[in-house]
Amino acid sequence: MVESDAKFQTLADALPHMVWSTLPDGYHDYYNAQWYEFTGITPGSTDGDKWNGMFHPDDQPRAWERWRKSLASGELYEIEYRLRHRSGAYRWTLGRALPVRTPDGQIVRWIGTCTDIHDAKEQAARNEILSRELSHRIKNIFAVISGLVGMSARQDPGASGFAKTLQARIAALGRAHEFVRPHSEESAPLVPTASLHGILQEILSPYPAMDEGRITMKGIDVRVDDRGATPLALLVHELATNAVKYGSLSVPVGQVRIETRVDDDVLGLCWQESGGPAIDGPPTRQGFGSRLSELSIVQQLGGNLQRHWNADGLLVEVEVELQSLVR
Rank of each mutant, 00 (worst) to 15 (best):
Q60F: 00
I138R: 02
P57N: 08
D58M: 05
I141E: 08
S146A: 15
D116I: 08
D104H: 03
A124G: 01
G74C: 12
W67E: 09
I141K: 00
I170V: 14
G112H: 07
P57F: 06
V100I: 14
E128D: 15
G95H: 03
N127C: 02
A168K: 03
L166G: 07
S87C: 01
R96D: 03
T102C: 09
L98K: 07
L134E: 04
A120R: 14
N127H: 06
E78A: 09
I79Q: 04
I111H: 11
G74I: 06
S152A: 15
I170T: 10
G150F: 01
G95W: 05
R86K: 14
N52A: 15
W92M: 11
M151I: 14
R68W: 02
V180L: 05
R86H: 14
I107E: 00
Q60Y: 02
A72N: 10
S135Y: 01
A63C: 11
E122V: 12
S70L: 06
E178F: 00
E122C: 01
L130Y: 04
W110V: 04
H136R: 15
I111K: 01
R68F: 05
Q123Y: 04
R86T: 10
D58E: 13
E78T: 11
S152L: 11
H136W: 04
S73A: 03
F179K: 11
H136K: 13
